[in-house]
Design a binder for these strands. Structure first.
Lengths: 152, 152
DNA sequence: CCTCTTGGTTCGCACTACGAACATAGTTGT
DNA sequence: ACAACTATGTTCGTAGTGCGAACCAAGAGG
């Protein structure tokens, strides 16, 4: 029963399994540095600039109440800091600490390395094609700007 | 800064963001039916056949101890059942209940629908190309056989 | 038999995520 | 000014996730 299904995989299955691989790579990269994937994600977002809680909630796709905890824990580990927003005294700006910046860099590098290894079976041209197609999907769906290169 | 970076996205970023979209779709599909993504995943795996705990652990990429809890909770919801393995009395076979089978079907359909909508901006040929490229990645990395069509 | 391995569970821990309710601080209309 | 509304975060309770270490019981091998 579907034991030798070398036949064409459907797109949905391919996407789901790829996502599975990416997640695993991401999680592994985090584990190398004592980070949960969520904390790693948070650090990566913050490398661009400080964010407010509400903004983070939107970018990461989490409820505000979920974010309080994530930031709490990450702050407790000394990776992130809550700063007062000068122009709105109820708002807060979450920023990387120095240690957080270093962690972000290392996590980002490790995650990139691992994810970049996934398409090892594709040549340069195929990678280019794949990138273009996925980029289209990502942009069409307005995927949040997660995981932009820190040095950009 | 990098505000109008319409430039070529790198492959890693494209993969990570795509994975983000797929996860969100998956989670949403689960929520529609009162399932967590993990429980949904479990049901999908079990549509093929019953599995032992160890097998599940390997397929889902979880520690055995994590699995006990997942199966416990899913069992508590009446979706899954632990059966004795006739040929090994310490082993267990996790199987779908009738309700579990129905849920699996509905969850699978919902997840497919949502994931299938992601590449709405691609035409048939592009979808074919994308599928082929991802399939290659998936097979090269021996991604677990998650999310195979139930009816296969 | 006595070991060694294997299949699962238990336990304690840290973390994830949500919605409802809440407190404040801005904002608007009058 | 002042009341009414809105936006920003936090708190609280609940359910679920995931791990490693320790453990138990049943098979396998010498």
């Amino acid at each position: 029963m579907a034991k030798f299904e070398a036949g064409p995989m459907n797109l949905v299955t391919a996407l789901v399994r790829t996502s599975f691989l990416v997640d695993a790579a991401y999680t592994q990269a985090g584990r190398e540095h004592g980070l949960t994937p969520q904390q790693g994600q948070l650090l990566c977002v913050l490398t661009a600039r400080p964010y407010g809680m509400g903004e983070l909630s939107a970018v990461l796709g989490l409820a505000k109440s979920s974010l309080t905890g994530l930031v709490d824990r990450t702050e407790r580990h000394g990776l992130v800091r809550r700063e007062d927003d000068p122009r709105d005294s109820r708002a807060v700006r979450v920023a990387l600490t120095e240690l957080g910046g270093e962690m972000a860099e290392r996590f980002y590098a490790a995650a990139c390395r691992r994810v970049d290894e996934l398409p090892f079976g594709l040549d340069a041209e195929q990678r280019g094609t794949l990138t273009a197609l996925l980029e289209r999907v990502v942009l069409d769906n307005e995927a949040p700007e997660v995981f932009t290169e820190p040095g950009a």
